[in-house]
Design a binder for these strands. Structure first.
Lengths: 192, 192
DNA sequence: AAATGACCGAAATGGACTTTTAGTCATTTT
DNA sequence: AAAATGACTAAAAGTCCATTTCGGTCATTT
């Protein structure tokens, strides 16, 4: 009990600190202080700062998976599930303090660990998406193509419409994004 | 004659230096030396370093426009022209020393002027593409949607398949890229 | 009138010195 | 005996200041 509690205290303190200050500005001393624990104790649970960070990331990934799985219903068409999941995921990314902070840290300082952290999360999303696509293809819902590439392009398309676009233009509404996705995904640009 | 020559000497020297050393590491003293001209002379033609850089960028954009226009034939379908142009453009970007150097400079040092330069070029491409798309829509070749967004997504899609993808996987072949583009653009993912 | 290059101030660079911080480990607490 | 502690260390980051570099100017030369 005592051991478990200490671990939790540390993880919770680290969560707060990473979300508030980012990776670089979070010091082990500070985490120890918030957790009401001596610094050495942290090292009985985590080999180093990066592993502590990894623990937090892993829980974020699990949380994201839960959120998307709530949206997926097997009796609905693949695209419907896809749009819902993507919306939820983007909303999560926008609102989750840790992710917001990490994006900012990468943009402003280029901290490698922050970038690698975000890459890990993106990889987890790609992996999850890939399996969804594979399943949809096997169910005959979409054409069969390399699911890895499809997943990759889908994510890029979504990021392009939701994030990249806003750097030079007024943000697109949810409805517009949905419409454009449908054009490219279900319809295609072609008129015929 | 003498005046024109001096200007040309300077521009040619600057072209070489920017392509070889990037924006930051190119010094006005060095450009003057290569051009066999006193530093002050550069300032009779260009207000400052950035304007000299702009001149080079402008000529790169013109060159790109020429290359794509060679590929476009009005009697061919829009998509055919599009794929050809994109291929040529990407090849140009990959092979043009200045662009390669600028990409590297942005990645390694984040020099703002280098990034802005690449942004200008991308904007020029987007602008050109937008007009092509608008034309195709008016000709009834593709569905009518905001050409700005379509152009934006097309470029992002192409960069995703040709450049981003290579950061984690084996590069896709020209044929694969073409196939995927067709899926998304003319066909759509949907099976029906 | 055009071209030059010595010159200027601002900004970048380098290096000595100081502070901070990740990680360790001998000692204390439970 | 096992867990927790915090003073300690080595290395990384930060600060400061002297020196150099570089974009841009302008009095002088061609």
């Amino acid at each position: 009990m005592a051991v478990v509690d200490r671990r939790r205290q540390i993880v919770e303190a680290a969560e707060k600190s990473f979300a508030l200050f980012g990776y670089k500005a979070t010091t082990m001393d500070h985490v120890a202080k918030i957790a009401n624990v001596a610094k050495g104790t942290i090292y009985t649970f985590f080999a180093n700062k990066e592993e502590l960070f990894d623990e937090i990331l892993r829980s974020v990934i699990i949380e994201m998976k839960k959120i998307t799985e709530q949206e997926v219903q097997d009796d609905r068409p693949f695209f419907e599930n896809l749009y819902q999941s993507m919306d939820k995921l983007l909303e999560f990314r926008r609102e989750h303090e840790l992710l917001v902070k990490l994006f900012q840290e990468v943009r402003d300082f280029g901290t490698p660990q922050a970038r690698e952290g975000l890459e890990k999360i993106e990889l987890a999303i790609l992996d999850y998406l890939e399996r969804q696509i594979d399943r949809a293809a096997k169910h005959g819902e979409i054409r069969e193509f390399d699911p890895k590439v499809i997943a990759f392009v889908l994510v890029k398309l979504y990021i392009a419409l939701t994030s990249d676009w806003n750097k030079i233009h007024e943000p697109l509404s949810k409805e517009q994004i949905r419409e454009f996705s449908q054009i490219f995904l279900s319809g295609g640009l072609s008129k015929t």
